[in-house]
């Protein structure tokens, strides 16, 4: 690939790292400095990232979603965009260091494992592909945000429950707001993941002749789906609340990281289309 790809390979993680740093600085200082610099930096970074995708599209004629590294990178972008929307909605940048920090980690991972530059297998030329991979990755972004909200929930809960509110207390929104954010993000994520799995099945039928082949990644996706369905179930029917559901969301996300990293590395899977 050309040098543009190499530049972005360094520039994107650097930019995400910088934005994380700005958010983190603001979070630690909490000097009521305007949130504008952080948001502007985030907007610029998203802009550069989209430019990178457009250039890639122009160069290779395909959307960069085929390899693990490209998936991670798109994941980072989705997370940043969903977060930006959220920040504007809930009017606090307090979650920024955590969520953008996560996007940064994924950018870094993508750059460490560079994208192999081989021709695409025919199976990825299908129109289903963008919908399938796109929704699946967007759903992971939503789950990531749910996890960040849940983590903050647990931290704030512990301070409040111990009777000595302090560092976290002064910096983040209410328990109820975090809880609601987590719930909304999970609902959104589950909806997207359902679409992702369904389109994947339809596409598999089209490409390989069967809907479901118990591929390791299919199995973990199904597990994630079940975990978050269970999350919604214990909340609405099981009478769970507070810290317990927050822990639940965190465990669910640990599973996603497992899919991305462990399954990708250990198992042979149909979802690893490009030889490395």
């Amino acid at each position: 690939m050309g040098s543009a790809a190499e530049i972005f390979n360094v520039a994107l993680p650097s930019l995400y790292g910088l934005v994380t740093g700005i958010y983190l600085y603001r979070f630690l200082r909490d000097d009521r400095a305007p949130s504008r610099p952080a948001r502007t930096a985030l907007l610029a970074t998203i802009g550069v990232h989209i430019l990178a995708i457009v250039l890639h599209l122009g160069e290779t004629g395909r959307f960069p979603l085929a390899s693990g590294g490209e998936g991670l990178r798109f994941f980072a972008l989705c997370t940043a965009i969903v977060y930006l929307y959220l920040e504007i909605r809930i009017r606090t940048p307090a979650m920024g260091p955590f969520i953008i920090g996560l996007a940064f980690v994924f950018q870094l991972a993508a750059s460490v494992r560079p994208t192999p530059s081989v021709a695409l297998p025919a199976v990825l030329e299908s129109g289903w592909f963008a919908v399938h991979a796109g929704t699946a990755i967007l759903s992971f972004s939503a789950f990531a945000i749910a996890t960040a909200a849940s983590t903050l929930y647990v931290l704030l809960y512990r301070e409040l429950h111990r009777g000595r509110p302090g560092f976290i207390f002064r910096r983040i929104p209410s328990l109820e707001a975090l809880d609601e954010m987590s719930l909304r993000a999970v609902r959104l994520g589950l909806m997207l993941l359902t679409i992702g799995i369904a389109t994947g099945a339809l596409w598999a039928k089209d490409a390989w002749g069967r809907y479901w082949s118990w591929d390791p990644k299919e199995c973990t996706s199904l597990t994630i789906w079940l975990v978050y369905v269970a999350y919604l179930w214990v909340r609405t029917r099981g009478g769970w609340s507070g810290k317990r559901v927050a822990y639940f969301a965190m465990v669910g996300f640990a599973l996603i990281v497992f899919t991305f990293v462990f399954v990708e590395l250990v198992f042979h899977t149909e979802h690893r289309f490009v030889a490395s």
């Binding site: 909490d30 000097d31 009521r32 704030l156 409040l160 509110p165 207390f169 002064r170 929104p173 209410s174 328990l175 109820e176 707001a177 609601e180």
Partner: peptide, 23 residues
């Protein structure tokens, strides 16, 4: 600065806490 921040009476502390539990 944060010179005007943080409740300094018992009742306003209670309100601050309530606002961190309920939106």
């Amino acid at each position: 600065t944060r010179i005007s921040e943080g409740a300094i009476s018992v009742s306003s502390c209670a309100v601050d806490l309530a606002r961190k539990i309920f939106t």
